[in-house]
């Protein structure tokens, strides 16, 4: 930061940082959901690359890119698990928050304020591509999946998670999450953009990928915890594999 940065700018930065990293702040749903997302990623990456999921750093030597990384909520755990991590996000503010947080916590992560296709143009490829809670914000899903596919090495894994377009998700994700529990700022999600698992799986197949697994993430409000289940009616995730060399 330069000396001319004024207090108001710093205040704005602190607020942005808090939006991402305060576990009870605006990103609370992501913090609550993070453990179940991380378990899912860890289990499938370990299975694919023959790693022991009970080790503390099972991802040593793996390259991972997080597309739409925001403040780094997924990048940091991936780095702690041992991976070399790149995080990209179109928002320069989010990237600034992510860089600052990683520096403070002694983590070496490459953050870039770029759209995913900037990496594609450079020909960068990764063992694992994460695109979590992002496709519902994307205007052109097939074009996005093409980029994501290009970022994976042959035999690499691509993770997607999003919200289903059902009456229940409308009631919960829009009604409850945004308006009742005030978990997310209004307008974060447009229900009409939510892809159904069928639509997303078809799009993955069109992109030349093989779907390895799908799962629902369900929320138990009383215990304030998430668990994996077959119920994909609200939150769900998919793993796809790019054909080997």
């Amino acid at each position: 930061m330069t000396e001319t940065v004024d207090a108001a700018e710093i205040g704005k930065f602190d607020r942005m940082a808090a939006t991402w990293w305060d576990p009870d702040g605006e990103a609370k749903p992501l913090h609550r959901m993070n453990p179940i997302r991380l378990d899912y990623i860890r289990d499938h990456v370990c299975a694919q690359y023959g790693r022991d999921p009970n080790r503390i750093r099972p991802f040593d030597g793996l390259d991972i890119v997080d597309v739409g990384c925001g403040g780094g909520l997924l990048c940091e755990p991936m780095a702690r698990l041992g991976a070399s991590v790149t995080g990209v996000d179109a928002s320069a503010e989010a990237i600034a928050v992510a860089r600052d947080h990683a520096d403070t916590h002694g983590l070496n992560i490459e953050y870039r304020a770029d759209p995913a296709d900037a990496l594609v143009r450079e020909g960068a490829q990764f063992d694992v591509v994460l695109a979590m809670e992002i496709v519902e914000h994307v205007a052109d899903i097939p074009a996005f999946l093409k980029d994501v596919t290009a970022l994976a090495k042959p035999g690499g894994l691509i993770f997607l998670s999003t919200l289903n377009r059902t009456a229940k998700s409308y009631a919960l994700a829009i009604g409850a999450a945004e308006y009742v529990l005030r978990w997310l700022p209004r307008g974060t999600h447009d229900w009409n953009k939510f892809p159904t698992p069928k639509e997303l799986e078809a799009a993955l197949v069109d992109a030349g990928l093989t779907v390895v697994d799908d799962t629902g993430f369900t929320y138990a409000a009383l215990r304030d915890t998430w668990s994996r289940s077959d119920d994909m009616s609200v939150n769900y995730a998919l793993v796809a594999e790019k054909a080997g060399a």
Partner: peptide
């Protein structure tokens, strides 16, 4: 469990 999913084990979360 937290360390095996890469969480920061010193957080109150």
């Amino acid at each position: 469990e937290a360390a095996r999913r890469g969480e920061d084990i010193g957080t109150e979360d």
